[in-house]
Design a binder for these strands. Structure first.
Length: 562
RNA sequence: CGGGGCGUAGCGUAGUCCGGUUAUCGCGCCUGCUUUGGGAGCAGGAGGUCGCAAGUUCGAAUCUUGCCGCCCCGACCA
């Protein structure tokens, strides 16, 4: 493609609204433009990359027996009522105003709708159905360019099996296909155990990329590879031991002491002697959650014990306990009390007195809080031990690229997708669902492959393999040589972007080439042409060589086959 | 949804507090000449509902009110 005739609007300056590297670079390279918050247009250069990612996904999905569909994004609401997910998605689902339609945020319902009509016998299964299609979610806060949008491309697939063993097999096939897809895309990723969340089902894994732009937090063990979303991750921490003898309970006047840090400073104690209280409300019932010291509540873990828990409002807290947030404690609290495992059976603890400006010391959780339950509720922290190998865990933000779920029968049961087994008995189909954020693959690639000059594409995803630069395009010999190269490189099968602009300065062209980041730049200049040579630059390393023009194909073959 | 910030030409911006000729500057764009190995020079030129609406005023980018949009933090989130 000739740059003089292309629409590749590069930007020299960083647009005001972009913060995240991949967003900045996609705007600056003219890959995308924003239409509205969380809604992006892909321009020709960006769409080339989208198509490349989709092709890789298709090849790997087809390789595991997937069959590609193309379902409507506009769905009748009544199908979604069958699984009660109109309510479950709530405001996240887009509703069409002038007809009872919704814009699909995912496609479990539609795939199940088709499955229940055609998968009537055990002989019809297993099946794996997929599509690459636009999803719509009314995200309250779109962010980071295409990383979180209101409209995005997703590869979603669905497996239909007759047994849980069958589901396991389908799930494993997807796991291996996903690994191949992300490897082929050149991403450094890892797989973490995850929460199934609102999707339901038994097992779930996320494919993650480490990134400061990430919205998930994961724990990762460098030495054994253990990885988990902090929503579900576990770690090994020093157990705390009950003291020999329990003191009596005593009240302490603690004026203006609210936080655990203030309490520790005021009483000159360690935070491991403190029990922090958080009050949650679940369906109008209060639950007191006790955490050691400054440890934080993992609300995903809490959700498994207490449905629909939300933090109590300040007014609710004082009404329930008689005290404000900084002075609440378990002693005398009326209601369910769940303490983190680390607090199990501890004594001589300090906590709030349920009376403003007072705390209680000498608490023996076993003696003084008789209705206490224990559970693992904490958010793990960096530096804690790996439960598998004892090394230290790293905790960092990450972007979720893909998620695979064992759904089980949640959708087939509620929608009546049944099949007959060998004995003529009816069972719900056993399902899995599997997603990849297509644009996120691109954003993550760019997050991982850029430098101060711009994007650094690898051959696989690069919109073009070669960026051919004709320097002074007013000189006849430069025009002839670069045009000839342009033709011959293309006939060799390379995708070539040819900077044939007549009036752009050399520096301008070089900087654009570095910004756009094609793997190889070939520079045709007047001086080198006199020796029948051109210059070849490898974008990634910055290495440059002079190459005889008739050697160029061989040189390229060597580079691209490395 | 809570907190903070922002909205002036395609992009980046000055001016807004303290109202006053023709709204600033850089990049980009157009024309001509020169220039062509790391974001050129000279000369000339085009491009603006100052987010929208109402109000105050002799006069509003500037003050007031309402609305819309965008970004960031938090909450939320397959």
């Amino acid at each position: 493609m000739k740059l003089s005739k292309s629409f590749i609007p590069t930007l020299k300056e960083v647009p005001n609204d972009a913060v995240v590297t991949s967003h900045v670079l996609m705007l600056r390279t003219g890959m995308i433009r924003m239409l509205s918050a969380g809604i992006y247009s892909f321009l020709p250069l960006g769409y080339k990359v989208v198509k490349k990612v989709c092709e890789i996904i298709r090849e790997e999905m087809d390789a595991i027996g997937g069959q590609e569909f193309h379902l409507p994004a506009l769905n009748p609401k009544e199908i979604w009522e069958e699984t009660n997910r109109v309510e479950a998605f709530g405001d996240t689902m887009f509703h069409v105003k002038n007809r009872e339609y919704i814009l699909a945020p995912t496609h479990e319902e539609i795939m199940t709708y088709h499955a229940r009509r055609v998968l009537a016998s055990y002989k019809d299964m297993p099946q794996t159905w997929y599509q690459i299609q636009t999803k719509f979610r009314n995200e309250p806060r779109p962010r980071s360019g295409i990383i979180r949008g209101r409209q995005f491309l997703m590869k979603d697939s669905y497996s239909f099996d007759t047994s849980s063993e069958g589901l396991d097999a389908s799930y494993k096939l997807h796991d291996s296909a996903y690994r191949k897809i992300f490897e082929r895309c050149g991403l450094k990723f890892f797989v973490v155990g995850a929460s199934s969340g609102a999707m339901g089902g038994s097992g779930s894994e996320e494919f993650m990329v480490k990134s400061s732009a990430g919205e998930d937090t994961v724990a990762y063990c460098e030495s054994c590879g253990y990885a988990g979303n902090v929503e579900v991750a576990v770690s090994k921490v020093e157990p705390l031991i009950r003291k020999e003898s329990s003191k009596e309970i005593y009240e302490i006047h603690t004026p203006n002491v609210k936080s655990i840090d203030e309490l520790c400073a005021f009483l000159n104690i360690d935070e491991t002697q403190c029990a922090k209280s958080r009050v949650y409300i679940s369906d109008n019932t209060p639950v007191l959650v006790l955490m050691l010291g400054n440890e934080e509540v993992n609300e995903t873990k809490l959700e498994k014990l207490v449905a629909n828990a939300r933090p109590g409002h300040p007014e609710e807290l004082s009404e329930l306990t008689g005290a404000d947030a900084g002075s609440i404690g378990p002693v005398g609290f009326k209601g369910r009390i769940i303490a983190d495992e680390r607090l199990r059976n501890l004594n001589n603890m300090f906590s709030g007195a349920n009376k403003n400006d007072y705390h209680i010391g000498g608490i023996d959780l076993t003696r003084d809080v008789t209705n206490i339950e224990y559970a693992d509720l904490r958010i793990i922290k960096a530096g804690e031990g790996c439960t598998r190998c004892n090394s230290k865990l790293d905790v960092f933000p990450a972007i979720e690229l893909g998620h695979i779920f064992k759904l089980g029968t949640k959708y087939s049961e509620s929608m009546g997708a049944l099949f007959l087994d060998e004995n003529g008995k009816s069972h719900p189909i056993i399902m899995g669902s599997y997603g990849i954020g297509v644009e996120r693959v691109i954003a993550c690639y760019i997050e991982q492959n850029n430098d101060e000059k711009g994007i650094v594409w690898d051959k696989t995803l690069a919109p073009f393999h070669i960026h051919l630069i004709g320097l002074n395009m007013k000189k006849e010999e430069v025009i002839t040589a670069s045009e000839n190269l342009y033709t011959s490189l293309q006939s060799e099968g390379y995708l070539v972007l040819f900077d044939d602009r007549k009036d752009a300065q050399a520096g301008f062209k070089f900087n654009d080439a570095d910004l756009l980041g094609m793997p190889i730049q070939i520079i045709v200049g007047e001086k080198k042409l006199k020796e029948n040579k051109v210059e070849l630059k490898i974008r990634k390393s910055g290495e440059r060589f002079e190459v005889e023009i008739d050697q160029i194909n061989e040189t390229l073959k060597n580079i691209f086959n490395q």
